[in-house]
């Protein structure tokens, strides 16, 4: 499913709304999440999952092919952790025994 297919689905479920409003809603939601992560905030959507940002220090890396060293700058990376309800739905609605790491 792409963003435009998602917009299409939402439009089908909300025939009383203008398509341009649905487009704006979808843009707003993902922009809001992006903006929060850019500020270093966490985004927690219960039942769906949580987005967070982790920092990586600068380090000296090595090109594995040539062996030459390269400087890798400090950076921040986005992370996503699947929510419990979605994880269980993906696995047929039952928690998987033994592997449930919180």
């Amino acid at each position: 499913m792409t963003k435009s297919e998602l917009i299409q689905r939402l439009a089908e479920r909300n025939p009383h709304l203008y398509l341009r409003d649905i487009e704006k809603i979808v843009e707003t939601v993902f922009d809001e999440i992006t903006g929060a992560l850019a500020r270093g905030d966490r985004v927690e959507l219960r039942g769906f999952g949580a987005f967070s940002v982790k920092s990586r220090d600068a380090r000296t890396g090595r090109n594995p092919r040539t062996g030459e060293t390269v400087k890798v700058d400090a950076k921040r990376l986005p992370f996503f952790k699947t929510g419990k309800a979605l994880r269980e739905r993906l696995n047929g609605g039952t928690p998987q025994g033994g592997s449930e790491y919180q």
């Binding site: 707003t28 939601v29 922009d31 809001e32 927690e44 959507l45």
Partner: peptide, 12 residues
């Protein structure tokens, strides 16, 4: 650091 939730998305 703040935590954004559904309510914040709805507000936006």
């Amino acid at each position: 650091s703040k935590t954004i939730t559904r309510a914040d998305l709805a507000e936006a």
